[in-house]
Amino acid sequence: MSRVVAVLGAGNWGTTLAHVAASNGHSVALWSRDAATCEEINAQRSNQRSAPGLTIAPGVRAILDLREAVQGAELVLFVVPSQAFREVARAAGEWLVPEQLVVHGTKGLELGTHKRMSRILQEETCARQIGVLAGPNIAAEIQRGEPAGTTVTTTYPRVFDVAREVLASPRLMMFPGTDVLGVELCSALKNVVAIAAGMAAGMGMGENAKAFLVTRGMSEIAHIALALGAHRATFHGLAGIGDLVVTCASPQSRNHRLGAAIARGELLQDALARIGMVAEGVPASIAARELAASQTIDAPLLERVHRVLHESLAVERALEELMSLSPARE
């Protein structure tokens, strides 16, 4: 059955998801606020700035008008950066109706409020049937049709059923989950660890050091998320360890690239400008620190990433400090 789908946000991941859904035979409206991008997608089937090299499936129609994209869609996918999420949600909220299903693929928390994206949707729209798409999914690999697994986490079974019909294929296996809070926190905070892994790579450190940082990072994330009500099983799932492994191991990940650039001595602003895309780990590092403090949890690794990024702590010094802590318990 062909379904009508809206994808909001024509960045790398949004364009990829629109392409996947259209390749599965569904009719996709891809919303972008950039007229040139819409024009390029519709005329040349490409989006060179965000998804270079991809020939976008013919079932994708790029649309500049949010209302036109949202109205009539059975499933609405929100794939916009976390700091623009509320604004887009509020605008889309003008047209969303209660029976529409919403899934978001944004890995981040709102600055200042630390709110999760599903919360923002609940605050800005009438939508209730909400799910989160998360997993070890490098967009470029999905575009090439390489095998991958992902998750849609929701307490509404129909959201999963429809999302699976739209996005899953013999190349993309989709698992259900119900721990929305855990998945959202995990996917947001793991980007901070990815920056740390990038820093280790940038400093030319070995695999031992990287594994050490990644594992400690996961443990800190788990402590924070569990205190806030996450389920333990989430951390060893695709949206937990799966996503962390891929973000930290892959030099293609933008957070990883950012960390490596900083370790090589580049300034944060320059590195961000050069990468040219949003690195969610930067705002997430601020949220990580404040959330840990609010739960009185010690998170030395996340804390130091924050200080390197925002308080110009030298990377070498951060590592020294980290190694000289007296470990309480793993």
């Binding site: 909220g93 003008e94 109706v97 209660p98 029976e99 800005e124 009438c126 079974p157 129909r158």
Partner: peptide, 24 residues
């Protein structure tokens, strides 16, 4: 939540028909 009018019956609809779904 933004004060826009909303029809509560639509929360129960699938393809225009009221559907029974305990988990929902």
């Amino acid at each position: 939540p933004r004060g826009r009018p909303v029809d509560p019956s639509r929360y129960l609809l699938v393809n225009g028909a009221v559907v029974d779904d305990d988990a929902r």
